[in-house]
Amino acid sequence: MRQIILDTETTGLEVQRGHRVIEIGCVELVQRRRTGREFHTYLNPDREIDEGARAVTGIADEFLLDKPRFAEIAQEFLDFIDGAEIIAHNASFDIGFLDAELARAGIPEPRIGARAQVLDTLVLAREKYPGQRNSLDALCKRLDIDNSHRGLHGALLDANLLADVYLALTSGQGALGFGDEAVAGEVRVAAELRIVTRPRVLRALDAEIVLHEARIAAIDKASRGACVWRRLETEAAPIAATA
C-alpha cells in the first residue's frame, strides 16, 4: 500500500475568503515504511499572509515573492499523490485548500478525493482518545514522539511528525505483519488452514462401550433409577426413532 502523509500551510484559515496555500509538504510511505521520497515546495500566493498565519509559520510575504505559483507545480504534485492514500490531520482543511488551488489552476478534475483516498488522523485520534485534546502537539506528547524541534509550524516538518503519529496510532496493524508480504502470506495461509480444518471424531471401541454400560448400570442401581445419564438416554430414544 502506498500512502502520502500530507500537510499544508496557508495565508489564513478561510478558503472561502480567498486564502491560499503557501507551503505543501508530503512524505511517502509504502507498506507502512518511509521510502525517503518527499514532495516539498513553498508557493507565492499573490496575496498577503494574515498576521496569525505569519506568527504560526514564521513565513514572511517577502520570502514567497520568488517562489512558484501553484499552477506551476500542480502537475508535479498530482503525479506524486495520484493513486495513493492521502493521510492528513484535519484533512478537510488541507483538502479544501488544495481543491480550490487545483480549480483555480484549471485542472480538469480538481478534487483530490477523485484521485486518491483520504484518511483523517484527527478522526482516528478522536475515536481512540474521545474527549481529549488531539492536536498534533498533543498526540506527539501522548504517543512519546519527539517534537521539541517544532518551534513553528512547517508543512514538511509537520508531515514527518504526522507520519510518526499515524504509525503509532495504527501500530496494531503493524503488529499483525501487514507491512511485510511474507508475514502477511503466512497469516493468510494460517487463516485458510483454520477454515478448512475439521475436528477429528474418535469413536469408542466395543470394549469401552461395554465398560461404560456396566458403569452406568451400577450407578443407576445404586441411585435406585435416579441416574441422570440413563434418564437422558431414555428421553433421547424416541427422538432417534423418529429421525
Score class of each variant (00 low, 15 high):
Arg2Thr: 01
Asn160Val: 07
Asp7Gln: 03
Gly131Trp: 02
Val30Thr: 06
Asp94Gln: 05
Leu98Gln: 02
Ala114Ser: 14
Arg17Cys: 13
Gly131Val: 01
Glu28Thr: 03
Arg32Tyr: 15
Asp120Arg: 03
Gly179Val: 08
Gly174Cys: 04
Ala217Ser: 06
Ile239Pro: 12
Asn44Arg: 09
Asp137His: 13
Asp206Gly: 14
Ala74Trp: 00
Val56Cys: 05
Trp229His: 14
Ala159Thr: 00
Leu232Asn: 12
Leu64Asp: 01
Ala138Gly: 01
Leu43His: 03
Ala236Pro: 08
Ala91Gly: 07
Leu136Ala: 01
Gly36Met: 00
Glu208Lys: 11
Asp220Ser: 00
Gly172Ser: 13
Val30His: 15
Glu14Asn: 11
Gln132Trp: 11
Gly58Leu: 06
Pro199Val: 08
Glu101Ser: 02
Arg32Pro: 01
Asp61Met: 07
Arg69Trp: 04
Ala91Val: 07
Thr8Ser: 00
Glu72Leu: 01
His40Val: 04
Arg224Val: 02
Leu13Met: 13
Ala53Pro: 04
Cys140Pro: 05
Phe63Thr: 08
Phe39Ser: 10
Asp164Ala: 10
Gly96Ala: 04
Leu157His: 07
Gly106Leu: 07
Leu205His: 15
Pro108Asp: 11
Cys140Asp: 09
Ile73Gly: 13
Ile22Pro: 08
Ala222Tyr: 03
Leu43Cys: 07
Arg54Ser: 15
Arg188Ser: 10
Val56Pro: 03
Ser171Glu: 15
Glu186Asp: 10
Arg115Val: 00
Leu43Val: 06
Asn44Ser: 03
Ala184Lys: 14
Gly131Leu: 03
Ala60Thr: 14
Asn160Leu: 13
Thr197Asn: 08
Glu51Ala: 15
Glu213Gln: 10
Gly58His: 02
Ile5Tyr: 05
Asp94Lys: 05
Leu176Phe: 15
Phe97Cys: 00
Thr41Arg: 02
Ala125Glu: 09
Ala55Glu: 15
Asn134Thr: 13
Ile239Val: 14
Thr170Val: 09
Ala105Ser: 09
Thr10Glu: 03
Val27Arg: 03
Gln3His: 11
Asp61Lys: 11
Gly58Cys: 07
Leu122Cys: 05
Ala71Ser: 08
Glu28Val: 01
Leu124Asn: 05
Leu124Glu: 06
Arg111Gly: 06
Glu9Phe: 02
Ala116Glu: 07
Gly225Lys: 01
Ala74Asp: 00
Gly177Glu: 11
Leu122His: 04
Asp206Trp: 11
Asp144Val: 15
Arg231Lys: 13
Ala237Gln: 14
Lys221Ala: 15
Asp206Arg: 15
Ile195Asp: 15
Val201Pro: 14
Gly177His: 11
Leu152Gly: 10
Phe70Ser: 01
Pro108Phe: 03
Ala236Gln: 08
Arg32Leu: 12
Ile49Phe: 06
Leu29Gly: 00
Leu6Asp: 04
Arg203Asn: 14
Arg231Phe: 04
Pro68Leu: 05
Leu169Pro: 00
Leu124Tyr: 07
Ala222Thr: 04
Arg231Asp: 13
Ile239Tyr: 04
Gln75Trp: 00
Val118His: 04
Val165Asn: 07
His89Asn: 01
Pro238Thr: 07
Leu143Lys: 12
Ser171Tyr: 14
Glu38Gln: 06
Ala100Thr: 09
Phe80Cys: 01
Ala84His: 05
Ile49Pro: 06
Glu23Phe: 02
Ala116His: 09
Gln75Ile: 09
Leu78Gly: 03
